[in-house]
Simulated scan of single mutants.
Amino acid sequence: MSRLTMGNIIKAVLAILFSVFVAFYVLLIGLSAKNKKLIIEGAIYAVIFSIAFSLPGDSGAFAGVGSMAVSAVRTFMLRDIWLPRRNQNPKHVTVVQQSAPMHAYHPTAVPAQPVPAPPSFPGAQDDLSTSLTWVNAQAKQNKHRLPADTYVTILETCQMLDSAIDAERRQPSGDARFKYELEAMVREYLPSVLRGYLAIPPSMVGSRQPNGRTPNEELAEQLSLLQGQAEALHGTRHQQTSSDLTTTGNFLRERFGHHQPDGFDFGIK
């Protein structure tokens, strides 16, 4: 889905024209999304930038430029909120209820039994990114129905999962357990939680259930658990990528590090 829409172009042009106020962008994004965490984060950047002018010497300039740089990076990371992609029509995707339980991913744990096949999901032959596209489209389409914090949580979770999927596509890890947990997260757990919440009438999302919790509270807690799982998968996958690169580097240093500049070594002794 493309971001090249008239609204996004106008926003991007305005962001560039007023880039001197980039330290306030995260605060504006948080206010627009009604996300408390982003509002607090953005307020910190804005306060640091504001008081930087009163600091003596180079310390003020360093604080001001630093707050602008960090805010600019965070603004880019949050582009799915203020520069949303065109919504893809989700009608072609049919989702069914799944019953498999969610298990935390522990990279050091080795299952005693063979890893079961990934849970079934309509369109199982599709790329995993298609499932994330559906979740993104549903979240954006129902943005005003979702509690403010949960909307951002869904986008950030999708972003981490998409990064893990991209790394796995580029260089498969060969870890069957990791692949199972990633596919379960993308094709089952995350869509099921979102679908279940959206099936509840808006007038009932604040009503207490027999367990004493409201659907809004349940959604926030379940998405928090899923975000933690996504962080674990994302961190594990990229740590392995870094480890693989180090292993390759060690091999190359061992293999070619002794070469002389005036000769060639083809490994023939």
Rank of each mutant, 00 (worst) to 15 (best):
256 F>N: 08
194 L>G: 00
107 P>L: 08
161 L>F: 12
72 A>L: 07
81 I>L: 03
185 M>F: 04
86 R>E: 01
196 G>W: 00
157 T>W: 02
105 Y>V: 11
83 L>R: 07
242 S>Q: 11
45 Y>V: 02
168 E>H: 08
198 L>P: 04
192 S>T: 11
116 P>E: 05
54 S>M: 02
86 R>Q: 02
155 L>K: 11
145 R>L: 06
227 Q>F: 13
229 Q>P: 07
234 H>T: 04
198 L>N: 02
91 K>V: 06
213 R>Q: 15
38 L>G: 03
217 E>M: 01
103 H>R: 06
37 K>P: 01
31 L>W: 05
157 T>C: 09
215 P>A: 10
17 L>C: 04
118 P>V: 15
109 A>P: 05
47 V>A: 04
58 D>Q: 01
166 D>E: 12
79 R>S: 08
218 E>W: 10
24 F>I: 11
265 D>R: 13
232 A>D: 04
154 I>M: 09
13 V>P: 00
11 K>Q: 02
268 I>R: 08
1 M>I: 00
267 G>I: 00
257 G>V: 07
72 A>R: 07
74 R>C: 04
226 L>V: 08
25 Y>H: 14
140 K>F: 12
24 F>A: 10
251 F>A: 15
23 A>V: 06
212 G>M: 08
175 D>Q: 08
194 L>N: 01
164 A>T: 11
139 A>G: 07
77 M>P: 00
227 Q>V: 02
101 P>T: 14
22 V>G: 05
177 R>I: 01
128 L>A: 09
157 T>M: 01
137 A>P: 03
140 K>P: 02
87 N>F: 07
10 I>A: 15
20 V>N: 07
87 N>E: 03
132 L>R: 13
169 R>A: 15
160 M>P: 03
187 R>Q: 14
202 P>S: 14
247 T>Q: 08
235 G>E: 14
23 A>C: 08
219 L>C: 02
32 S>E: 00
138 Q>D: 01
66 G>P: 03
215 P>D: 12
89 N>G: 10
193 V>E: 05
258 H>A: 09
148 A>N: 14
101 P>F: 09
202 P>G: 07
47 V>F: 14
220 A>M: 06
153 T>L: 15
247 T>D: 06
219 L>Y: 09
148 A>M: 09
11 K>C: 06
106 H>Q: 08
121 F>R: 06
190 L>G: 03
155 L>Q: 10
158 C>D: 13
136 N>D: 02
170 R>P: 00
216 N>Y: 09
66 G>F: 03
266 F>S: 14
211 N>R: 05
252 L>E: 10
97 Q>D: 12
123 G>K: 00
252 L>V: 15
95 V>R: 09
41 E>G: 00
100 A>S: 13
191 P>M: 13
